[in-house]
Design a protein around this nucleic acid. Structure first.
Length: 475
RNA sequence: GGCCUGUUCGUCUAACGGUUAGGACGUAAGAUUCUCAUUCUUGAAAUAGGAGUUCGAUUCUCCUACGGGCUACCA
């Protein structure tokens, strides 16, 4: 087998879409699995859609995800340049070669004429008008500077077959194909053309891309054949959907890698989750490091149907990653979220408690808001079926708790817990009930970083007693 | 409209002619527990519909329905 070379070829149009990230991931995994190279190529041929700094976003994302490329604009390589706008002359030379051997031709048609070609079903198919121009007509037009494009000359009969490693063999009638534009009037190549030329020159062995390109693949093959080049292996990937009808899109504001980072998801968890969307390892393993993914990856496991992105499952996976983090790492990651907490509390304790109860780091503010703001919580929180707790039980037992804790000398977790346990025994209130009541009374929150005694330690004795009295007064 | 492509629990998916159709998330019930967290146990939950091929179809073929993609001087 020849060397495996895959490439990730994004357009620098903004943030990194999660679907693109998966495409990059699969290409990376496949290359590394086969000791090959993973190449980054920037496809900036659409000068109108360029976005400042977008290339840096691509570098940063790849780096955060751990998908290091062996060749690319920033790291160089033997097949550069790796930015398409710097390869303009190359494409034009190859387009001329195609014109010379009859597989492409100059087209001088104006927009108006093109639009007159629209048929009654609303479709447009170029009629090869300029293919029939005489040699003189062409050189006249070129000499007088008439704007032109270069079009692919596809056969009008026969059929083209291509093979995809995911979707299998696909046959398309050539008469269904269009004479696509190869070189635009601004001199830049179209995506379709630049791709073929670059994938060949960069010796890409396997082309990983979204399945939206399935329909244009016959045109690609015709191009490869016109050049006499070897056709790469195609690996078309199903889409990632937001729901049954919509692709996960930038418009929804949450389809970018960065958006998920901001929501408190770990890069490794995102990557792990996304790897499993549209691919399965043929066993029941759900959690993979990048290296494990490399070892397990196999094109056979790629599915044909599109997959709906489920953030709930991502949260679960992310929580698994959080639990496995070293304590210090979690603490460091959580620190920024403590900024907004005004009351001084033991942050190390907070981190220790939080780590097992948070599924995304960004959950922290909601879970800790009671530290600063507490008054006016819902009294209904006292009513809890499982804990057999109610406002009524709170009313009777809280005075006992206040009296006991007010006189407690040692303010630490064990002391508080023992004290509360005793109260529960002496007053025939279930421990679970009592702890529930106390926790609600001092936090006013359904979900807290820890249990009653832990929360009491966190906010301190004075505040605990103060809050217990406040709660009792409200009942 | 034409062409391409897809369809297994709510979701991600396994089973590449023979299984009580498996796993995971979520969900329900229960146990443990200093929270509804964690952990553990158990349960409910799917082959889009119809023809065929076959001793036997989730699996192969065809039709229908319903998705998605393409049909640009965007990628």
């Amino acid at each position: 087998m020849n060397t495996v070379r895959t490439r990730f070829a994004p357009s620098p149009t903004g943030f990194m879409h999660i679907g693109n990230l998966r495409t990059a991931l699969y290409g990376y995994l496949f290359a590394k699995k086969h000791n090959g190279q993973f190449i980054l190529r920037i496809e900036d041929t659409d000068q109108e859609r360029l976005v400042d700094n977008a290339v840096n976003v691509i570098y940063q994302t790849l780096q955060l995800a751990g998908l290091t490329h062996d060749e690319g604009p920033d790291v160089g390589g033997a097949y550069g340049p790796y930015t398409q706008s710097e390869r303009k002359a190359i494409y034009n030379d190859y387009a001329k070669e195609l014109i010379a051997n009859g597989h492409a031709y100059y087209c001088f048609c104006e927009k108006e004429r093109l639009e007159s070609l629209i048929d009654d079903t609303g479709n447009r198919r170029y009629d090869k008008h300029c293919l029939h121009l005489s040699r003189e007509e062409i050189s006249d037009q070129l000499a007088s500077g008439v704007p032109y494009v270069i079009r692919q000359n596809v056969p009008t009969s026969g059929s083209t077959t291509f093979s995809d490693m995911v979707y299998g063999d696909i046959i398309v009638e050539n008469k269904e194909l269009h004479d696509n534009v190869l070189i635009k009037s601004d001199g830049f190549p179209t995506y379709n053309f630049a791709n073929v030329v670059d994938d060949h020159l960069m010796q890409i062995s396997h082309v990983f891309r979204g399945m939206e390109y399935l329909s244009s693949t016959p045109n690609y093959n015709l191009l490869y054949e016109a050049f006499g080049w070897e056709i790469p292996q195609y690996v078309h990937l199903p889409h990632i959907m937001r729901d049954k009808h919509h692709k996960l899109s930038k418009r929804d504001g949450d389809a970018n890698f960065e958006d998920f980072l901001n929501k408190g998801f770990l890069p490794a968890a995102i990557l792990n989750y996304v790897a499993l969307l549209g691919w399965n390892p043929k066993n029941d393993v759900e959690k993979f490091t990048l290296d494990e993914l490399i070892a397990a990856f196999d094109i056979n496991g790629i599915s044909k149907a599109s997959a709906i992105f489920d953030e709930v499952k991502l949260r679960w996976l992310n929580s698994q990653y959080i639990k496995e983090m070293p304590q210090e790492s979690f603490h460091t990651a959580a620190l920024p979220y403590y900024q907004s907490i005004a009351t001084p509390v033991d942050r190390d304790l907070l981190s220790r408690l939080l780590q097992t109860r948070v599924s995304a780091i960004s959950d922290i503010p909601a879970m800790t808001s009671f530290i600063d703001t507490y008054e006016g919580y819902e009294l209904a929180l006292f009513d809890h079926k499982d804990a057999k707790s109610s406002v009524q039980t709170a009313k009777t037992i809280l005075p006992v708790v206040i009296a006991a804790l007010e006189n407690l000398a040692d303010w630490n977790n064990d002391a508080i817990f023992n004290e509360l346990s005793q109260i529960s025994e002496q007053n025939e209130v279930k421990k679970k009930t009592l702890l529930w009541l106390v926790r609600i009374a001092i936090t006013g929150q359904l979900s807290t970083p820890g249990g009653a005694s832990e929360m009491a330690v966190l906010i301190g004795k004075d505040e605990t007693v103060k809050r217990l009295k406040y709660s009792l007064a409200r009942l």
